[in-house]
Amino acid sequence: MSVVTLTINDELASANSGQSLLEVIREHGIYIPTLCHMDGLSERGGCRMCLVEVQGMRTLQAACVTEVAEGMVVTTHSERLRKYRRMTLELIFAERNHVCAVCVMNGHCELQAVAAIEGMDHVRFDYLHPDLSMDISHPRFGLDHNRCILCTRCVRVCDEVEGAHTKDVMGRGINCRIVNDLNQAWGSSQSCTSCGKCVQVCPTGALFHKGVSVAEMVKRHDFLSWITLGREKNEWNYTGQPPYYATERRKE
């Protein structure tokens, strides 16, 4: 594995070739927001939160799906990027019914935290207020489409880690929705193993444990990297680390 040198925010940085830009940026202690990325899952590049400027590239690049290259010059926090991140968040908040005050994840939600960190203090777009349902047919878990941001972490974890592929996305555009099997009640799914990984990786209150009330749902954000890397790192006891956005001391 060869080593490459690149410049991030005017500082030289070194990385192993083949690493993603996101990984390297974070290794260097720079905070960069993400919503669809999750350690241990394949990358998707859909939330557009981790967009960075790369010198010589015509368009902005999503750091999670960009490989580092020798001599790359990267900017992670220009005025333009900050503004676009805020606008992206505005679009997400306007898309479905993200009412933090009455959400099971209030206070523990990644979306809520990222909005606060990025300074998205109001939404200028129309709230769409779609009439979406909630699926509480599963004995242990619930799925609330109103809170879903279509990051597809649940789809990926179900396919890539659990291997059940119970969940997928149906429809297209604004009508996309997470489905279980043939768009049936979750409780009636025969492929679901009730492992609950989807609940743990969901960044918002879209997937939750039944029985929790407002602000009571706390997720184990590092759960996935623990089970996927545990054998490698010989870490058999889950200790629970605080989520990324709360730990990193942010250097921008």
């Binding site: 019914n97 939404v123 009439d131």
Partner: peptide, 12 residues
Amino acid sequence: VTGNVTSLRNRL
């Protein structure tokens, strides 16, 4: 700021 709980009726 957001409509919040008051706007929950908007889907109806």
